[in-house]
Simulated assay, not measured.
Amino acid sequence: MKKKVNIGITLGDPAGIGAEITLKALKDKKLRESATFLLIGDYGTITHLQRQIGTSFNFHIISDIGRLSLSEEMINFINLGNITYNIPYGKIDARCGKSAYEYINMACLILRSQQSLSGLVTAPINKEALNLAGHHFQGHTELLAQRFNARYVRMMFTAENLKIVLVTIHIPLKDVPIAVTKKAVQDTIFTVHRTLNTYFKIKKPRIAVCGLNPHASGGGLFGDEEKKQIIPALINAKKQKINVQGPFPADSLFWKAKQGEYDVIIAMYHDQGCIPIKTLYFNKGVNVTLGLPFIRTSPDHGTAFDLATKNKADPGSMKEAIKLAVEMAQNKPRDRKKKKIYVPIKKRTR
């Protein structure tokens, strides 16, 4: 019997589809019963939304507590009560960026206290709104890395049998060749190997590495990053008995992984890895942050402002993100000792 795990879900930018896709995903009874869930957001926005999308959940509301006590029979909800304004649905707004940040901040407080959360799923936020609110991060990945002092975080995108991990994340394309260093590639390989072994139960992951340049430089005709940075990293990883191959031309490698030849692909930069998976699995893809001291997944899409309040948002990617967080948490070895610290949560007046 699989162990019961506790999963936190932040509801994202209030002007987008985060709350909608979360509630739609949890309509799946099998998914709902697979874990104990804790939603973090503003409860005042939920009543109208439930009527609109046809859900009727009864929540265990947590609004003024010193001890985090989760119900296993109901969906738990930490009510921050921080939306005291009319939500400008479908628009970028600093107030929404602030609310979204506060949801994430509460999740971080709980995770840092080592309370009972096994993992975190984050609904989409808007990067511009976040920055307008004074929180200068490029997204969830960088924010969580800073909060937990995680130096070597990596983004993984996964759907069905395709897994893609990025060496570099949100940087200008002109800066990528400088950032693709032997150390960066090597750290990525080690992180990927450890993650797939621990959370996906793949004992010897078959790792394939993309080249940076066209045709993986064509033997030096189109650049030398492969020779100077990528190949030395692969040599070092192989010395540690890691099953890694490459660098391969990126234009054909993803098809081979899709056919089952490899367990994971390491791509050098954002669009090299994201275009294939978003083309094939736009409503199924999941973003996983590797290198954090906890499990974090999210749907592989944004706030979809154009769909806000229209009851047209597809919850498929969110559903897959929740499923994967539960699966990874169930696969994680149990902690022998778990320190428990209680976090006081101040109730906000509406």
Score class of each variant (00 low, 15 high):
Gly54Gln: 09
Gln50Pro: 06
Glu261Ile: 09
Ala25Glu: 04
Gly273His: 04
Thr10Ser: 14
Val180Phe: 01
Ala35Lys: 00
Gly316Ile: 05
Ile242Pro: 03
Asn197Gly: 14
Arg348Trp: 10
Ala179Lys: 15
Lys183Arg: 15
Leu162Tyr: 03
Ala308Val: 06
Thr188Pro: 00
Ser71Thr: 09
Gly12Leu: 04
Lys337Tyr: 15
Asn6Asp: 11
Lys4Leu: 13
Lys204Ala: 12
His301Ile: 09
Lys30Pro: 01
Pro276Lys: 03
Met268Pro: 02
Ala133Asp: 08
Val153Leu: 08
Gly119Ser: 06
Gly66Pro: 03
Ile40Ser: 02
Gly12Thr: 05
Thr188Phe: 02
Ala159Phe: 05
Leu132Met: 14
Leu117Gly: 03
Arg296Leu: 07
Ser99Gln: 05
Gly302Arg: 03
Arg112Gly: 12
Pro293Asn: 10
Lys27Ser: 14
Lys338Ile: 13
Leu23Thr: 03
Pro205Lys: 04
Glu261Trp: 12
Cys274His: 14
Asn105Asp: 15
Ala313Gly: 04
Ser34Gly: 09
Ile207Ala: 01
Ile46Gly: 00
Gly218Tyr: 07
Gln50Leu: 09
Asn76Ser: 11
Leu111Lys: 04
Gly220Phe: 07
Ala257Ser: 15
Ile61Gln: 11
Gly260His: 09
Thr45Glu: 14
Asn86Phe: 12
Tyr43Ala: 09
Met74Phe: 14
Asn149Phe: 12
Lys258Glu: 14
Phe59Glu: 04
Leu111Trp: 00
Gln146Glu: 14
Thr198Cys: 06
Asn331Gln: 11
Val286Leu: 06
Gln229Thr: 06
Thr188Asn: 06
Gly54Arg: 09
Lys346Ser: 14
Pro293Val: 07
Thr309Cys: 08
Thr10Asn: 08
Val176Pro: 02
Arg348Asp: 10
Leu143Gly: 02
Lys2Tyr: 10
Gln272Ser: 08
Lys319Glu: 11
Pro276Leu: 05
Arg67Gly: 07
Phe57Ser: 05
